[in-house]
Design a protein around this nucleic acid. Structure first.
Lengths: 189, 189
DNA sequence: CACTAGTGAGACTCTATCATCTCATTGAAA
DNA sequence: TTTCAATGAGATGATAGAGTCTCACTAGTG
């Protein structure tokens, strides 16, 4: 019967993955029936796993945050040079796939902890950027918020570039990291 | 009675502006009553201007595209160096304000002409990037789509940076342009 | 002043979607 | 083979939001 539980966990995970994908392409207009369908299960079954739409969304948000946060922690950002840390950040976030876009697009007008996102994802990234600004790797004549937003923009651009480069995450991360580093060195004038 | 018409035009414009703002912060969850409220008019009146939600959305999309497109045309991109053209692109898009974000966030799963957006906004921008890749201003070892997506990402980042810099559009455009130019020069290795 | 276009408030209908429930079927465990 | 937890299909109820309509009110217009 431990077997059964394993299967259920797996299904639960499949639902979340499918939901992230579908919500990425269809947005909030994807209804419960669609989500069940995308996960390859019946609507009634979907409700057995997540008793309300709200609950599904929350679980998805939480899973997305956990995923990204875990990858960032595993990247051990504090103990490597800023250049390497930035590369790891891009790799970590891009590896989250559709879940990343879910956080980005939904967390604005959603039921879930903006604070949590900021604390566990935003802050670690900002810490690296701050360090880069202090040690001269990045220009320091701009507010951290600006640097941070430009970095975020590059992450979005990198994510959308995934389909256009071989070697997906690896190559795109490298390109984006390079762009950020070269783009945000001290002003030329 | 030409007077009356002027007032109506003005109200119509106010509705569109208010809608762009509200949809930017609240997303699709903003209902017709909210939109009427944000525009400072009654719900019934809103329906007199736009007889369905769909119609309002379409008008908003169209207004946003027209706005951005007009600014890009006015920028006379083909007849200035790539560096200047890029600066003008950032200024033009950022000047659109909330309408820009509306295009970006809604056009994915919306009723409106992705083709139109691509033809009148995407293509002029890509033309500049293509030119930059050909004349050596930008690195040419990446697919245009990647360069284009990274540029788009920077636009998003720049938009979000607006609140953090004095002189808003001007200063942010300059920073973003510089970042793009320095970031996407020929690879260093 | 009288007239009319335009308005806001609010009652109303209709529909899509959420959520619940039942029941027959399936497939794994005993 | 028997048992039973889990499932899919589909009927059903509940509700939020779209869209319609009426009516009294207001502010420009002649």
């Amino acid at each position: 019967m431990a077997q059964r539980q394993l299967v259920k966990d797996h299904i639960r995970q499949s639902i979340l993955d499918a939901a992230a994908d579908l919500l990425l392409t269809r947005g909030d207009s994807a209804i419960m029936a669609d989500l069940a369908n995308a996960a390859g299960i019946g609507r009634a079954t979907l409700y057995r796993y997540f008793s309300t739409r709200e609950e599904l969304m929350s679980a998805l948000s939480q899973a997305a945050i956990d995923d990204a946060s875990a990858r960032l922690e595993a990247a051990d950002l504090e103990h490597v040079p800023v250049t390497e840390a930035l590369a790891r950040i891009f790799r970590a976030i891009l590896a989250c796939g559709a879940k990343f876009e879910f956080i980005r697009t939904e967390h604005e007008h959603l039921h879930l902890d903006k604070e949590d996102v900021d604390r566990r994802i935003g802050e670690p990234i900002r810490a690296v950027l701050r360090r880069g600004m202090e040690d001269g790797t990045l220009r320091s004549d701009l507010p951290l918020d600006v640097v941070s937003n430009l970095c975020g923009g590059l992450i979005i651009g990198a994510f959308r570039s995934l389909p256009f480069l071989e070697n997906g995450v690896e190559r795109v991360s490298a390109v984006a990291t390079e762009t950020l580093l070269k783009g945000l060195t001290a002003p030329s004038e």
